[in-house]
């Protein structure tokens, strides 16, 4: 049995982000603790963690951890990594996880397998798979040397466990004081995005627009569809380079790599670099006037048609289906 720590983050409802539950499901049978930095989960959150097998829930506390910092988070996790004697430390490949886990790798002098999309265990040994070239190919990843080995997991890639742990963990919540020395790069202020939607990299449903959207104004028809089905709106590089959408919305090899349950591509031809960024989507719907567009080779459901006619009908039909 390997001793595992999962460092989690909270969503807006003070529940652990779903990637934590995904990881818990895949580590079934090992001894698992879950840590939060700064603030812990709600009672419902810790109950959920226990149901999926978490033993100890550690809330790492220091006066320097009231907001995110790469140095602070790294120092905090480093301290419990050492004292807890963990073999593996997991986290989600979120904005924070991607930022501070590499620093933790330097401080612990151990390896980090980043953005892993699947893994298996052979006894206590971890065998991972991760994409290269934005998913154009996959590679196996093995950790070398002594631990604790660090692993970040792409949200939505493992999938939620189909059942809870056979024996619930203790789920015992305790505050753990950690010693964080000076933090030099500290967030001074935050400019909140206009949209409160989940980030593309964590979204379960995505509606994306390409060059055929013609202008930024037309993206409102995608927003309307997205509002009905709870989707986040993305864009192709062609749309971003044409100034229709900001880079934060770009899906593809030089944008975000996404793996939602449902990806609806509207007026996107499907260049190699775009397909690389969204190919792990579970179900892909494509709308394009060109029946030969490469996107149709990846689509589960392809609609050859004009997006300006099809998208409003999609919105109407989804509204009817979902009773909105």
């Amino acid at each position: 049995m390997a001793k595992i720590l999962i460092v989690s983050e909270l969503n807006q409802s003070s529940l652990p982000k779903s990637v934590t539950i995904e990881i818990l499901g895949k580590c079934k049978g090992h001894q698992i603790d879950v840590a939060f930095v700064g603030a812990g989960p709600s009672e419902a959150g810790s109950k959920m963690l226990a149901e999926y097998g978490a033993q100890n829930i550690l809330v790492l506390k220091s006066d320097k951890l009231s907001s995110y910092s790469c140095e602070g988070y790294s120092a905090a996790v480093k301290e419990v990594a050492k004292s807890g004697g963990y073999h593996y430390i997991f986290t989600g490949a979120t904005a924070a996880g991607k930022d501070y886990f590499p620093r933790l790798s330097a401080e612990l002098q151990t390896g980090l397998a980043s953005d892993v999309t699947n893994f298996t265990w052979e006894g206590d040994k971890f065998f991972g798979t991760r994409p290269f070239f934005a998913g154009k190919c996959l590679a196996k990843v093995e950790m070398q040397g002594s631990g604790p080995h660090l692993i970040s997991i792409r949200p939505n890639a493992l999938g939620m466990p189909t059942e809870k742990a056979a024996a619930a963990g203790a789920g015992k919540v305790s505050d753990t004081a950690v010693n964080v020395s000076e933090v030099k790069a500290l967030v001074k202020s935050i400019i909140k995005a206009a949209s409160s939607k989940v980030d593309l990299t964590e979204a379960n449903v995505i509606v994306s627009g390409g060059r055929a959207m013609k202008n930024a104004e037309n993206f409102k028809i995608l927003d309307e569809l997205a509002d009905v089905i709870g989707a986040t709106v993305g864009a192709s590089r062609a749309a971003v380079d044409s100034g229709f959408a900001p880079h934060a919305m770009q899906v593809g090899q030089t944008g975000k790599t996404v793996s939602p349950s449902l990806y609806i591509a509207c007026g996107i031809s499907g260049s190699i670099q775009h397909l690389a960024g969204m190919r792990t989507s579970k179900v892909i719907v494509a709308v394009n006037t060109d029946p030969e567009a490469p996107i149709f080779t990846r689509a589960d459901y392809g609609i050859v048609g004009d997006l300006f006619k099809i998208v409003p009908i999609l919105t109407k039909e989804f509204k009817a289906l979902l009773g909105k």
């Binding site: 154009k136 590679a139 196996k140 149709f296 689509a299």
Partner: peptide, 16 residues
């Protein structure tokens, strides 16, 4: 610290 091997193409989806 990390070894990569077994590079392969991702599985192709059946035509939709």
């Amino acid at each position: 610290k990390v070894k990569y091997h077994g590079f392969q193409l991702p599985p192709e989806k059946p035509a939709g």
